[in-house]
Nucleic acid binder design. Sequence first.
DNA 1: TTGTAAGCGTTATCAT
DNA 2: ATGATAACGCTTACAA
Lengths: 353, 353
Amino acid sequence: MTADTKRKRRGHGRPTLHDVASAAGVTRITVSRFLRTPELLSRDTAQRVQEAIEAVGYVANLQAGQLASGHSRIVAALVPNLGYSVFAETIQGLIDGLRGSGYELMLMATGYSLAREEEQLRAVMGWSPSAYIVTGRRHTPAAMKLLHGAQNSGVPVVEIWDHQKATPNAESLALIGFDHRAIGAMMARHFLQSGHRSLGYVGSAVQEDYRAQERLAGFQATARRAGATVQTLSAGEGDPFEAGRVALGRLMAQCADISAVACSNDLLASGALAQAHELGLPVPARLSVLGFGDLPISRQLRPALSTVHTPTAEIGRQAAEAVLASISHQRPPNGVLLDCQLLSRGSSGPRIE
Amino acid sequence: MTADTKRKRRGHGRPTLHDVASAAGVTRITVSRFLRTPELLSRDTAQRVQEAIEAVGYVANLQAGQLASGHSRIVAALVPNLGYSVFAETIQGLIDGLRGSGYELMLMATGYSLAREEEQLRAVMGWSPSAYIVTGRRHTPAAMKLLHGAQNSGVPVVEIWDHQKATPNAESLALIGFDHRAIGAMMARHFLQSGHRSLGYVGSAVQEDYRAQERLAGFQATARRAGATVQTLSAGEGDPFEAGRVALGRLMAQCADISAVACSNDLLASGALAQAHELGLPVPARLSVLGFGDLPISRQLRPALSTVHTPTAEIGRQAAEAVLASISHQRPPNGVLLDCQLLSRGSSGPRIE
DNA sequence: TTGTAAGCGTTATCAT
DNA sequence: ATGATAACGCTTACAA
């Protein structure tokens, strides 16, 4: 009577390697080998094990496997939110990129709160993920420490939806996304090139969205350097379309000279477009409107909304690729600067007096 | 020299219970107890353990805990997709509902394929989830067997985004959602009550979406019972707005009598609205349009789109609640029939000759 | 090609 | 109130 034949007292009833082994007339390790390195088994044994697995309906216990091997095959992803947001697309890209790799996705939402991100990070660490994908390059000092700790012990960490020109050093994490300041600057240039000198900007309602703030900062800096003025306003909470309407009204009331308004996202811009119509301001002859994000609906508006197209799903796919490559090559993941296009459609153009 | 003092040879370097224990001058069990049932410890010991945990930066290894206890604290959720879809909202609701419960979300996307669902289900089973949340009540026979097996061994299973009047038996799983046939019938009645007798229906481009088919079936059955005619058409693939445009054009070309068209979702309906405008058909005087889903943009269209409001996020919250209650009360989860409102806005009304 | 022994880090059970 | 012991189901290292 070997160790392999004694009965269990705990556990939750699922068949184990042991059950398969006795059905096949081998020991557990042979079954384990069949699953891991089948080429090491004789054809005959492999055949019997295969049949036994099907006969008992064996499903491997991955927790036990992880405990023994140290590899969890879990990828942890933390994004601000999911509902009707760009991050849903990114997660879809991530799922697509992970598909067939044998890695599962553990997903958490931070609600744009860095404190909550840290809390979630601690919670998910208990699962020993094989990789971390977090949103943005800003974290609490403690979260930063946790992420660097992971990276230093060989667990890839990728920061998505952000990028910045900086000489990467040993301490820096891989960034996959785009440079929000540069995007803001590009938006400003779009207006400046059409001769606009009095600009408006409707900022995000989410104060914690530092990426939105960076786009605004880039916009302002570029516009002011060119001698243009920028009136800014944060959108109100709630329905962003409505908030965009209200914001445009207030902006024009503050400064009737404004001839071009950029918005922090396409929903705000759509509202602004509707309000411009209501105020009798021809678009783009009297007022240019520019969005950010390129929602499917944006190209359908009349006039179609000029906006910045962001590679939302691509970020997820690239992140998946980066962490998988990092895991298999045993080196830190690489950052990627992704391309954003400014799509000039009907809602923006030169001012016509 | 006790068993607690010998050094480890494997593992991935994170501090363990043992490390905390030696720092606190107790054994592993005491530390484990501190984390689980602190009230059983003396104040003094508890204090020392607490300090030791912080000192060594201990994070519990949840895989090991699950292996020993049999409770994984993972909730597995399978939805068709995420990007810009209603399911993203549902997952957000699920995340919100799970927040603070200590349960983590493992997320998978099936792409509306039942075969893929089965495959994913098998994969995630290896993690021994504490609960399964799947989309819809249709699965492959094998997947069905897996889900019933889980349910029978005390692991709650909830099917979301669906419901049906049926006498629940021991074999039936909890459904949290609404009755799609009934919704289809409600949509038909909305038109019938306004006197429409020649109806159109633009169906989903996703042939695998049986819930969309059920709404259509309910619509047709109710309309025909009332003596009305229904012309149906499946939307083309690709941009749904564009597909809605095309579909409306084809529908009106097929049968110029049609005075009311229902669409499988709001994006299709928005396209149909635009095309009606283009064809010179006044909405709703000559043509009524009805959507499904109530996207944020729908109420902003002119005329505002009449549509069915679905409790997308609520489904997720209720699912979270149901599985958590089921786990703590040790009984199968309860199904919930959720309410959908038909919002009659500007795009539908009686036909005016 | 197959097997044995010794863990992985935790918790359940029983003992003190 | 605290501890010793034996699992949980698997994999690595080494042996044959």
